[in-house]
Computed example of a mutant assay.
Amino acid sequence: MEVRRTPNNNRNRHNRRGVVGIESAIVLIAFVIVAAALSFVVLNMGFSTTQKAKSTITSGLGEASSAIEIAGQVTGKGNTTASKVDAYTIPIKLASGGSSVDITASKTAVKYFSKSVTYDNIFKGTLTSGTYTDINSALTAAKTAGYINEIPGVGAGSNSTAAFIYFTANVNNNSIVDAGEQAVLAIAYKNGDRPAALDTVNTEIIVSAGAPLTVVRSVPTITDAVLNLG
């Protein structure tokens, strides 16, 4: 007996194919959505990791470089009678591209050593008001401020070796070195600590951010009141 397929059988087959096609499309769309979500998570984690790495590198570079730099000639106040250096000055400014630096006594230290003496911290403070054109006027102001008890080389001299900072270009009259300002680190020696010709003086200026600024100079023959130490 011959069995003939009816049109209903063909219609059911087409319906089943249509259902299977829709289910496949739904599954495919679900896979695409999940893949997109996972890709977003992975990319977001990658961007976050990259940003953290960039911040770490930037911070590391900042700590490895000094926030301040030498801004001119290092000089000494020569005492030709005693053949000694009464005071020593290092001009400083912000390093190129650097941020403002706080130079208050609580956030700054100055290490010093020579052939005969070593000090862990001789920094006393900053003359915040106005500017000074020479070391002599700055020493007088430092004595008034109590950073030193006597002008080096005068009488018995100061009772201790001390460092202080004064400004030669002062914008804000505070204890922060800002862009456009220039300061000078001055070291006033007590008589027994004064370096002589051929001595080597080592100074390390430590501020709140960045690496310390180290300055090493050799003392020339003391024949003038102003000595150029380079």
Rank of each mutant, 00 (worst) to 15 (best):
A225M: 01
Y189E: 05
V171K: 07
K107H: 07
G157R: 03
I187Y: 02
A142E: 09
I29E: 14
T80Y: 04
G230K: 06
T80G: 00
N170Q: 05
R194K: 07
T75V: 13
S158F: 00
Y166L: 08
S114G: 08
A37Q: 10
S158V: 00
S158D: 15
G192H: 01
G146E: 02
L227T: 02
T168I: 07
N170T: 04
N170D: 13
Y112D: 04
S137I: 12
V219T: 07
Q51R: 05
A37Y: 15
T108G: 01
P152W: 03
P152S: 08
K115E: 12
L213M: 05
N159L: 14
T133A: 09
P195R: 00
G97P: 02
G192W: 01
F123W: 06
D120T: 10
A197E: 12
V219Q: 05
N136A: 11
E69W: 05
A156K: 11
S66M: 03
V19T: 10
T118H: 09
V215D: 01
N174D: 14
N9L: 15
E23R: 10
K107V: 07
V171P: 01
V74S: 04
G153Y: 03
V101R: 05
R16E: 11
A169N: 06
F31W: 15
K111L: 12
K124N: 13
E150G: 02
A186M: 03
A141M: 01
L227K: 02
I165P: 01
T128A: 06
P212D: 11
T140L: 09
S175L: 02
N174W: 06
S39M: 09
G98S: 10
V3E: 09
P212M: 04
I57Q: 08
A211S: 13
V3F: 11
T75L: 14
A141N: 04
T56M: 07
